[in-house]
Design a protein around this nucleic acid. Structure first.
Length: 940
RNA sequence: GCGGAUGUGCCGGAGUGGUCAAACGGGAUAGGCUUAGGACCUAUUGGCUUAGUGCUUGCGCAGGUUCGAACCCUGUCAUCCGCACCA
């Protein structure tokens, strides 16, 4: 069949499913299954990544439906956030890059122009995504679909309710927050809005103030733990500094720092410019109480920190080497009027004890790495990293930290106390906070970004200890697919800090009590799965009538139904429907969302719903590769869902996606397989038509083998579906069953048993139905079944019997290999079956060897048996071999029987006479030394 | 740097203490079928081999535990994911 014709068949089934409304979920008295897949952000077509993740839910949903569950699978569309708005803006500006992105997706210039309006995206892409899911045969209840943001007033009301609840419980807090900021446009700058500096983040420095008469000279550090070791300050004589009034104090800092501090909750006024050289030789009073000089150093850069460095030569190789350099440099000292004697008198002050280093760690590392001067930039960088790592993790604070602080830190580990020391310094008059970027960031406006402290930012209080406890309780009671993601979840729940949940621009819902702010996209998508349970009914209600009382009633069962503004009956139905479907049984997505979305989902559920409505299980999967490569537009292997549908049809695409991977590993979509799949699936249909309800009545051993094999596979496949291991399920249900079928047909010389082959066809069709529903419906219909296979009952496994088919199979392979070796066309093949005593020996050896591998003990026990004792030397050889490679117990009756019954088959396969001789009947057989489980073969 | 995951033939991947490491899929090679190609069928696909249903190696690397390790432990290297206001 041509692909085009096949796709018409697929369309036929979609239409039938729709007409029968089999995916429209209604509460009833069956057990329910509610699974969902995060609503995709609708700024482009769906791709194979969406396809693979969502297929896992789709297949599970169909599986559950066949197991008698009432299944709800709904799908919404996410519009919240800034990407659509900023993309639309760039279309409006006719920016070539953005224009090109749409052009590549196949839009005409005329169409693209329309995308200047954000709503055009939201009108277009959800509709197309729905088409993709429909074409692919998803069992989604589309009546319940919706979009987010204020464009959907009902959803908007729902999110407002959610935040009102969170606020009530004090899980939304107002606070200060450092954001990457464009000072020219006065906007925050996300990672995607940068020309340079993606991934750079705010970094918190400690400002250390050094008393300088009535003023302060201010340095910045990331190592407040070494503050007791300051021996001097370094200033670059060439640098441009300034004196500024900062919150009423006179500070000497770089102009850049003065500018930046004005964005960080400080009132800053620049008084006058100062050249670095003006400060050299002056003295300052330290936090530690010491008085130290200001020295010149060329390595000090005004772009980093405050442009002034305090020197801790004991634990900074940079500082120490600069000191060495200066101590050798009389000319410079003289130039700045420094007393050589005083410079030479400066010695590092030990502050940390680090195992593996002597008193002055920086000295060690300079020697060890052979650093010669300030110009050994690479080695100095390495030294810095090593000292930081070892100092932080292994170091302890020395006795200098005994009295200076409120607490006695002497002897304590740096790792444990660094944070407390930092806070104490900041709280003192010698310290303050300062944020700088980890690297240069340039915004689209071309201006260089800085860090701004936003002071009316709203946060989700994920740092709250009580909330964390609830989240852990929820996680502890969840099933995770796969289980090995649990440690990552546990880590993330602990690691999450307060999350800024509001933004200044984009699409979304306004914060109910502070309408200046929009709720950010990761925060409005945490409990919306509850919305699916009622969204189709909400469409009948004027959103104006929805208030917090309404949602309280429906989702929490609180309040008086009679007082609601909406239709009472409808409200009651919604309450019942929510109560029926919730909690969600399964939510699945890519592993990259563990760190935010999935964890947020846990937090928010515990905040709003009672325990019995908390999520039951999460599924996580790897990313999708195409033909072994990461999918990317530049490599030309970017495949959208509709590409896959067009090229392979739904069944083949579905099959290929799920057979590409499972668990947390990346999945590989092999296009070659997808291409070949339609023909293979059709072959199944042809086979079914040919053999269903036809065949031999008599039941042979080989039929029993096949029956058993079918049962075995039902059991295994069912287990795999339950664990969302769809690749393994496909492996068994398609490939392994096909191979079994191949052998069966060959073994029964193309004359299958009617009952067996019919059962085979039906079982395989049922097992594959969740993954390739179209071909399975087609087969099911051809078999004369009246109902949809989508609603058929999952097959039940019968008895699994042990047979010796594997023995027959390996015997045939052995015979063939002997024939190949001797390279003749055989007239007669003689098979010698092992002696009786050998079976006996094996049956004694097996349990024996599990106990002990002591050769003497084994010999001792086996030789007690009279039959074996008679064959002493031979037995020894067998035991020796068995000890080396292990043994199995062979059922001699079944084995000889199997061979006797397969003489016809072997004759047919080999085209020659077959003779079977038991060893005790023939000297030659004994000489050939057949062992249990292996026959000796003679070809003539 | 932090946290997590992974590392098995030419490739994708099974196998998590013992009967056979490499199921299954793909690729390659040979043969069959075919006007040809594709599809399909059969066989081969670590090394050695005096060719024997033979021997032996091998599961990132190095150690260890064990009668026995791809699997457990320790160390180490490499790759991938995430690290925040971004969907």
């Amino acid at each position: 069949m041509l692909l085009g014709d096949w796709m018409k068949t697929e369309e036929k089934w979609i239409k039938r499913w729709q007409e029968a409304k089999i995916f429209e979920a209604k509460p009833d008295n069956r057990e329910k299954f509610f699974g969902n897949f995060p609503y995709p952000y609708v700024n482009s077509y769906l791709h194979l990544g969406h396809f693979y993740s969502s297929m896992r839910l789709e297949a599970l949903s169909r599986y559950k439906r066949m197991n008698g569950f009432n299944v709800l699978y709904a799908q919404g569309w996410h519009c919240t956030g800034s990407p659509i708005v900023s993309a639309a803006k760039r279309i409006e500006e006719k920016e070539p890059k953005q224009w090109g992105i749409l052009k590549m997706q196949g839009f005409s210039d005329e169409q693209i122009e329309k995308f200047a309006d954000p709503e055009a995206w939201i009108d277009y892409f959800p509709k197309e995504a729905k088409k993709d899911f429909t074409d692919m045969g998803y069992s989604i209840d589309f009546r319940r679909s919706f979009i987010t943001t204020s464009l959907n007033p009902s959803y908007d009301k729902f999110i407002r309710w959610q935040f009102a609840k969170l606020k009530e419980k004090n899980f939304v807090l107002k606070g200060h927050f450092p954001v990457v900021w464009d000072p020219k446009d006065n906007t925050p700058v996300g990672d995607h809005d940068r020309i340079e500096g993606e991934g750079e983040t705010p970094q918190e420095y400690v400002l250390v103030k050094h008393r300088f008469a009535e003023k302060w000279i201010v340095s910045a550090t990331l190592r407040p733990d070494t503050i007791m070791g300051v021996t001097n300050l370094y200033v670059n004589p060439e640098s441009d500094l300034c004196e500024a009034t900062v919150d009423g104090e006179a500070w000497i800092i770089s102009e850049k720092t003065a500018f930046e501090l004005s964005f960080q909750d400080k009132k800053v006024q620049i008084k006058q410019k100062i050249k670095g050289s003006e400060l050299i030789g002056k003295k300052v009073k330290e936090f530690s109480g010491l008085e130290v000089p200001i020295l010149p150093a060329s390595f000090v850069n005004t772009n980093v920190g405050t442009g002034i460095v305090h020197s801790v030569p004991s634990d900074s190789a940079d500082d120490l080497i600069a000191l060495y350099d200066l101590q050798k440099d009389e000319a410079t000292c003289k130039k700045y009027g420094l007393e050589m004697k005083e410079v030479l008198a400066i010695k590092p002050i030990a502050v940390l004890k680090i195992p593996g280093y002597n008193e002055i760690p920086a000295e060690d590392i300079i020697k060890k790495l052979g650093i010669k001067s300030q110009n050994d930039k690479d080695k100095l960088k390495e030294a810095k990293e090593m000292l930081y790592k070892d100092g932080f993790y292994k170091g302890t604070l020395n006795e200098l930290y005994k009295k200076k602080f409120k607490k006695d830190y002497s002897g304590k580990k740096v790792e444990d106390e660094k944070e407390s020391i930092k806070e104490e310094i900041i709280a003192s008059e010698f310290g303050d906070r300062y944020f700088q970027l980890t690297g240069k960031v340039v915004a689209r406006s071309l201006s260089e970004c800085i860090i701004k402290i936003v002071d009316d930012q709203w946060f989700m209080a994920y740092g709250d200890k009580e909330w964390k406890k609830l989240a852990h309780e929820c996680l502890d009671n969840m099933k995770l697919y796969p289980e090995k993601t649990r440690s990552q979840f546990n880590y993330v729940l602990d690691w999450l800090r307060n999350w800024a949940c509001t933004r200044e621009f984009g699409l979304g819902t306004r914060l109910p009590w502070d309408e200046k702010w929009l709720i950010e996209s990761l925060s409005d998508s945490t409990i919306y799965m509850a919305y699916y349970t009622i969204s189709h009914k909400l469409q009948k209600i004027d959103a104006e009538l929805l208030d917090d009382n309404f949602f309280d009633y429906v989702f929490l069962g609180k309040g008086d139904l009679k007082k609601l503004k909406v239709d009472k009956k409808l409200a009651q139905e919604m309450r019942e429907e929510f109560d029926y479907w919730y909690p969600m049984d399964f939510r699945t997505t890519g592993k990259d969302l563990i760190q935010n979305h999935m964890s947020f989902c846990i937090f928010n559920h515990t905040a709003i719903f009672p325990k019995e409505k908390w999520p039951k299980s999460f599924g996580l999967n790897g990313h999708v590769m195409v033909d072994g490569d990461k999918m990317s537009k530049s490599k030309g292997n970017f495949v959208t869902m509709r590409d896959a549908y067009r090229d392979y049809g739904a069944d083949a695409a579905r099959f290929t996606a799920l057979s590409g991977g499972e668990s947390i590993d990346d999945a590989n979509f092999e296009r070659e397989m997808a291409k070949n799949m339609p023909a293979k699936l059709e072959a199944m249909l042809a086979f079914a038509k040919q053999h269903h309800n036809k065949g031999r009545i008599e039941k042979l051993n080989i039929d029993r083998w096949m029956d058993s094999k079918i049962n075995e596979i039902i059991v295994e496949v069912t287990k795999d579906y339950e664990e969302t291991l769809f690749r393994s399920a496909l492996q068994l249900a398609y490939f392994d069953l096909q191979n079994a079928l191949k052998w069966y047909m060959r073994r029964c010389v193309n004359s299958p048993n009617k009952e067996t082959i019919t059962r085979f066809i039906e079982v395989q069709t049922l097992l594959l139905a969740p993954i390739t529903p179209f071909i399975c419906e087609e087969i099911w219909e051809a078999l004369g079944k009246k109902e949809f296979i989508a609603l058929a009952r999952w097959p039940q496994a019968g008895e699994i019997t042990k047979t010796n088919e594997e023995f027959v199979k390996s015997t045939l392979e052995d015979i063939n290999s002997v024939i190949r070796l001797v390279n003749i066309k055989p007239q007669k093949v003689t098979l010698f079956i092992a002696d009786d005593w050998k079976y006996e020996l094996y049956s004694i050896l097996k349990p024996m060897l599990e106990e002990t591998r002591d050769f003497k003990a084994v010999i001792g026990k086996t030789m007690q048996n009279e039959k074996i004792k008679k064959h002493g030397q031979d037995a020894m050889k067998i035991i020796e071999k068995a000890m080396k490679s292990g043994v199995n117990i062979y059922d001699k009756e079944a084995e000889s029987l199997a061979l006797n019954e397969s003489v016809d088959f072997l004759k047919n396969e080999l085209g020659c006479e077959i003779e079977i001789i038991k060893a005790e009947e023939s000297k030659e057989a004994k000489a050939r030394n057949a062992l249990p489980g292996k026959v000796a073969i003679l070809v003539k």
